[in-house]
Design a binder for these strands. Sequence first.
RNA 1: CGGGGCGUAGCGCAGCUUGGUAGCGCGCCUGCUUUGGGAGCAGGAUGUCGCAGGUUCAAAUCCUGCCGCCCCGACCA
Length: 579
Amino acid sequence: MRYSEMFLPTEREIPSDAEVISHQLMLRAGMIRKLSAGIYCYLPLGYRVIRKVEQIIREEMNRAGAQEVFLPMVQPAELWQESGRWEYYGKELQRFRDRHDREYCLGPTHEEVITDLVRNELKTYRQLPKNLYQIQTKFRDEIRPRFGVMRSREFGMKDAYSFDADEEGAELSYARMFEAYKRIFARCGLRFRPVEADSGTIGGSFSHEFMVMADSGEDGLVFCSECAYAANLEKAEVHPPEKADMSAIEELPLTEVHTPNIRTIEEVSAFLDVTPQDIVKTMIFNADGQPVAVLIRGDEEVNEIKVKNYLGCNEIELAMDDMIEEVTGAPRGFAGAVGIRARIVADNSLLNMKNFVMGANREDYHVRNVNVGRDFSIAAFADLKIARETDACPRCRKALSLARGIEVGHVFKLGTKYSKAMGASFLDRNGKDQTMIMGCYGIGTGRTVAACIEQNNDENGIVWPMPLAPFQVIITPVNINDKALADTAERLYDSLVAKGVEVLLDDRDERAGVKFKDADLIGIPIRVTIGPKKLAEGKVEIRMRDTGEVNAILLEQVEETLLSQIASKMGENVSGSHD
RNA sequence: CGGGGCGUAGCGCAGCUUGGUAGCGCGCCUGCUUUGGGAGCAGGAUGUCGCAGGUUCAAAUCCUGCCGCCCCGACCA
């Protein structure tokens, strides 16, 4: 491709509405342009990178035995009513009516469509397992799209669905996808980590997210310093504290203290001159309409998802003031466990606490020297807190580490959630009707590209890993009006193109500085600079974008040198060959 | 949906408080010079000042309503 002919509008200044680095660089490098909130156009440079990601995905999905299909984006409401998600999915699901007033939605995901397709066509265990995937545009009417293509409303996604006859088969399908995903993200040149995750509204029993490590990521994750445990912060378990021998500590008499307008942990600890570790927080939740009091040590935070999963409820939120007053008889800020009219659950952080402070369920009062058993009882302790770095690994008790990441892929064991609701069954060996067991597996293509930029950039722009680079090589003659330079550039360009190298020839009549800045900004891994001084010696310069290393190479050796550089940079992230 | 901010040339911004000829930098076009890290000089083009009402002799500027976009929160694969 000739730069002079390419639609590649680069920007010198940072667009004012871009916050994160990947968004800024995608705009500046002419990869994307915004059409509307959360809706983006991909320009040629950006789309070339998308196609690189898609190609890697295709190769690895095909290798893992999946087959590519292409499903409609517009989906009839009836299918979603069948699965029950027409009601449950909420406002993210973009609904509309056609001219006959029939209801439809734009596909945010395709469990319904694929399950419908499969139930109509697959009838016997002999036809199973099957794994079908597509790469397609999804639409989710996000409450707040942000960070460019990282969280957009319209976005590209690879989604795969597996159908198995039995649990062992489903396990195998899941494991194969898990391995395929590891290969995909490794081949993309990403530093990533698979983590255990909550399965959310997609549902199902078990899932892993693939997190690209980046401080700008929206998700928190924890991982063990010793063993393989890693999980999304939403899900991360912690090992309960060692049970200490508390018998030596005498239980002091319960005392009510006047604490006028003292509500928060900070206020209470300052006012009563105790540490937050001496206080128990009582959080009132509304769980499917029922009040639940969650007790946790003052310096810890409640993980709502853990509470939700522990209670097994559908909806959970912090209770409104009227519910708080109903169960405590006091306004917000003075809730405690003693005498509360709500189910009580306690985090493990209470295990070794004695003579602690909590709200008195009376306005402007707290109580001191509260003790579990004597003053109120707890049916069971559970892990309900947000994990911290001071917590111990739930598997091996070693130290946990915290990091931030970008979720680029998610694999779910769906079980029979959709196949049962929609009647996707088959006849087994004995002629008996059985429900298919499903899995689903997603990768955000645009998000993968953005995540890659988050990990690979410097002050001059993007630094593409070779496998995702829109071009492998850029040829930069420093002055196109110097015929010797221009001719050399043209000849090298032709010969590299003939060898199948993806090369951009910067044939613009611009000064060298402008070309260098643009080459750095768009992040092409290898730049061949053709200038008068080195050319007089029969040489050109090869400069690596990542290290900045420059080597002068004899013209007759350039092609060979480039081919070997490219080859070594294509495969350096994955051992073994790939088709 | 709640809170905050912004909408002026392709991009980044000033002007608005105190109403009166719409500006700056970059980019763009022409010419000359220059040619290895975003060149210099000279000349030039480009604006329904987000939209609609209102106040006024006069509105980018004041008032009202609406729309769009960004940030924080709630929410979310």
